[in-house]
Write a protein that binds this DNA or RNA. Structure first.
Lengths: 114, 114
DNA sequence: ATGCTATTTAGCTAAGTAGTGAATCAGGAG
DNA sequence: CTCCTGATTCACTACTTAGCTAAATAGCAT
């Protein structure tokens, strides 16, 4: 398995359960049981998913009595955003519009030339 | 393994070899051998990585004689970008600045109150 | 037909992942 | 101290992934 940060982050995000947990944490702190509640999974399974998210640095965990409140951490998402930036031309709609625009321009020129 | 599109895409991106192949394809079409060239991997290994990328819809393959020219496909990247949008508040720097700004405001208010 | 180059498929191994239940640790509360 | 709740670790099973070599397929060139 790849161990570079970006690979670990992508791998952590490659699971709908973990993304749902992250979505829940985007709304604020939650305990492990809070996170487990929507799923038909054992607590150990949730704990494991959580560990994957922590290992990726996407989530940090505190302690309050017997609870382990979890928070979302922005750094790895930022790294993904930076990586995505390098491919913006492929996914940004405005680029598609620009592409269509340039194509239209070229067509006009062709018609003028004919 | 999760089979939803986003999970498959993230899983495909969770490998530095595959991301490097994608980076190469971002510069234009390439054959399988072209893609294999920078790596110390057997051709079958590259072919497998390529299949993962194709299965994620990130790459499409044509045929020209005995070559299979590969192209990058934008749709799954777009889906990732859309997903990321939902977390912009966590990774966008301007949010950090806003956060700092609000914090500064609150500190000022506190000092005024004291 | 034969061969040559590009690529894929098959069959295998080693290692990693996702889930389970049982047991254990952490930390109040009676 | 003992019990109860929250959470983790352990030991195990089923499955997937990444790599390899060897063999097969695709398509041009002779």
């Amino acid at each position: 398995m790849a161990t570079d940060q970006l690979s670990v982050t992508f791998a952590a995000l490659a699971d709908p359960t973990r993304r749902a947990m992250l979505a829940r944490l985007a709304q604020g702190e939650a305990t492990v049981s809070d996170l487990a509640q929507p799923f038909d999974l054992s607590l150990p399974a949730i704990s494991k998913h959580l560990k994957v998210l922590q290992h990726a640095g996407l989530v940090s965990q505190g302690r309050r009595a017997q609870w382990r409140p979890c928070r979302i951490e922005p750094a790895p998402l930022k790294e993904v955003a930076v990586w995505m930036e390098g491919y913006r031309q492929f996914w940004d709609e405005s680029w598609d519009r620009l592409d269509a625009y340039l194509e239209a321009l070229q067509t006009e020129e062709g018609e003028q030339g004919a």
